[in-house]
Each structure stands twice: as C-alpha cells, then as structure tokens.
Simulated assay, not measured.
Amino acid sequence: MLTPVEDGPAIVVCNTCRFSADAREDGQGRRGGTMLAEALAQARDADPRYAGIAIQQMPCLFACSEHCTVHLRAPDKVGYVLGRFTPDADAARALLDYAVAYAASEHGKVPFAQWPQGVKGHFIVRVPPAGLVVES
C-alpha cells in the first residue's frame, strides 16, 4: 500500500483529482490532478531554481470536496494541503515558487509577503510533522 519515495521537499499531487469544481475531467477525458502533475514536472524541469523540489503522485488525497489538490511536505516541517487550482503552467509555477521558499524556511512557515499570488486562497489545511505541534 505504501511506496518509498525521496525524503526531501516534495509536492505530492493527487493524480485522481477532479478537473474543476464542476467537472471530473476535461473535454478529452483527463483528470485535473494528472494534468497538474504534468504541468509541475514540466515547470520544474524547465527552471533550475526548482530542481530541489520533487514532484510525487498518488491517487486520492481525500480532499474530494476540492479539486486539483496537492500536499507540500518536507522532513521536520509543517506540511500544507492546497487545492482549487487550474491545472496549468501558471499554477505549477506558483506552487513551485512557494515550494522553494518553503524548502528554504526553518520550519515550513513562509512569511505571507513572500507568497506567490497564485497560492493565496488555496490553502486547505496545515499538518504538523510527526511528534510535533505548531506554536501560535
């Protein structure tokens, strides 16, 4: 049931996520999560700033009330679930820009002033790392 992956900063993409709030798939029968994973991989591979961020996929993050959902995580950092993205290059770059700042942060907290516009309003939940909770 579990598959080992690289243990470092990663964007885990729900590859079965809906295309949008209103549609399960696009006009060609493709799921939004698969499209977002492809856009993330293309953006990462095109820009060396993103080289340290892994793009990992899994079916269903159980955030089914949303669409195009990802989990941003890194060892010993607070993780975040974000969603409601359009599965395109703009969303991919915004997520990767945030992921770079997140990876460089001490505990996973990126100051709001550094958030790319494309991630604002997309946060669903934050997840404390194992054995820790977040202080106020």
Rank of each mutant, 00 (worst) to 15 (best):
T34G: 06
Q56L: 06
Y102D: 13
R49P: 01
M58N: 12
H67V: 03
S105V: 09
R49M: 06
V12M: 05
L61C: 09
C68Q: 13
A103P: 09
Y80S: 12
A74N: 10
R44Q: 02
D47P: 12
T69P: 01
A104M: 13
H67Q: 04
A10K: 04
Y98N: 12
V13M: 05
G79F: 05
C17R: 05
A74G: 14
D47N: 14
H107A: 12
G32Y: 03
A54R: 02
Y102L: 13
H71P: 01
Q42I: 04
A23L: 01
T16G: 05
C68G: 09
N15H: 13
P87F: 07
F19W: 10
R84Y: 07
V81T: 10
A89V: 13
R73W: 02
A92E: 09
D22N: 01
Y102T: 11
I53F: 09
A43P: 09
T69H: 05
A23R: 02
A41G: 00
I11G: 06
F85M: 13
I55Y: 03
Y80R: 05
L82N: 06
L61R: 03
A92Y: 15
A54W: 00
H107R: 11
R18L: 01
A101F: 14
V100H: 11
D76A: 12
V13D: 07
V78R: 14
T34I: 00
G33V: 05
G79W: 05
L72E: 09
K77D: 06
P87C: 02
P9W: 06
N15L: 03
A103D: 15
M35H: 00
T34E: 13
L40E: 04
Y102M: 12
Y50P: 07
T34H: 08
M58L: 14
I11A: 10
D22V: 00
P59V: 08
D76N: 11
Y98I: 05
T16A: 04
D88P: 09
C60G: 05
R49A: 10
C64Y: 06
Y80C: 07
